[in-house]
């Protein structure tokens, strides 16, 4: 569960004011908003990467408002994947496990399991340079899931992908959800991603946040309301 209460975050000139929402355990929440609406700032606040001015963040039952990012049990997938370029695909996925001091055998097992789920087994020995955008996002997802986080934060993970790859990623994200029962917060400005993935939809605009019902493709799409 992700619960945010009266959160205020300042990022330069911009200020996100008094934002509250709740995404229940195991849900797939999508947060939509225009560029510059503060989506990423909110996500960074939840991940512990932006200082919170006031309000609180709960992950599960734990108040993590002032906890370090490392202690929050979050898997974070940024927009461009942000893979570690000096490491192989294997080392990227294994990163959180190496930091936690897992044994080589345990790491191997977990990385193989994830690589299979994400369809990147054939890439494990490769370096990051030369991988396609879709491959990079899969690996970034694997890296985020490795330590079995209870929360997964995705910051526009599909925005740089072509349509075919995007369809594949929808399937992949659904199967990840089935496998791991992770609570997901997915940021996007694309209505199709919402329709394909979300079971909760939050709209962020003018520094405030509201929950909206999800309109599936059969009803009228309403991008204008975003």
């Amino acid at each position: 569960m992700i619960r945010v209460e009266n959160l205020t975050i300042r990022a330069g000139e911009f200020r996100l004011r008094d934002v509250s929402f709740e995404a229940p355990t195991g849900s797939y929440a999508v947060l939509m908003g225009k560029t510059g609406s503060g989506k990423t700032t909110l996500l960074e606040g939840i991940c512990g990467l932006k200082r919170i001015e006031s309000g609180s963040v709960f992950l599960g039952d734990r108040d993590v408002t002032y906890a370090k990012p490392a202690e929050r049990g979050i898997g974070f997938v940024p927009q461009d994947g942000a893979l570690f370029r000096t490491m192989t695909v294997y080392d990227n996925i294994a990163f959180a496990l190496t930091v936690r001091g897992w044994s080589d055998g345990e790491i191997r097992e977990r990385v193989d399991e994830l690589a299979e789920l994400l369809g990147v087994t054939h890439l494990l020995d490769r370096h990051i340079t030369g991988l396609s955008g879709g491959e990079q996002q899969r690996i970034s997802l694997g890296r985020a899931l490795a330590a079995r986080p209870s929360i997964l934060c995705l910051d526009e993970p599909l925005s740089a992908l072509d349509d075919d790859t995007r369809e594949e990623m929808y399937t992949l994200l659904r199967s990840v959800r089935e496998h791991s029962h992770v609570t997901t917060l997915h940021i996007t400005h694309n209505i199709a991603e919402t329709q394909n993935l979300a079971d909760r939809l939050f709209i962020i605009a003018n520094g405030g946040l509201t929950e909206r019902p999800i309109k599936r493709p059969d009803s009228t799409p309403s991008i204008e309301t975003v």
Partner: peptide, 11 residues
């Protein structure tokens, strides 16, 4: 960003 990801991964 990569550094921040490392922080969320437990560093």
């Amino acid at each position: 960003r990569r550094e921040q990801v490392a922080l969320t991964l437990g560093c």
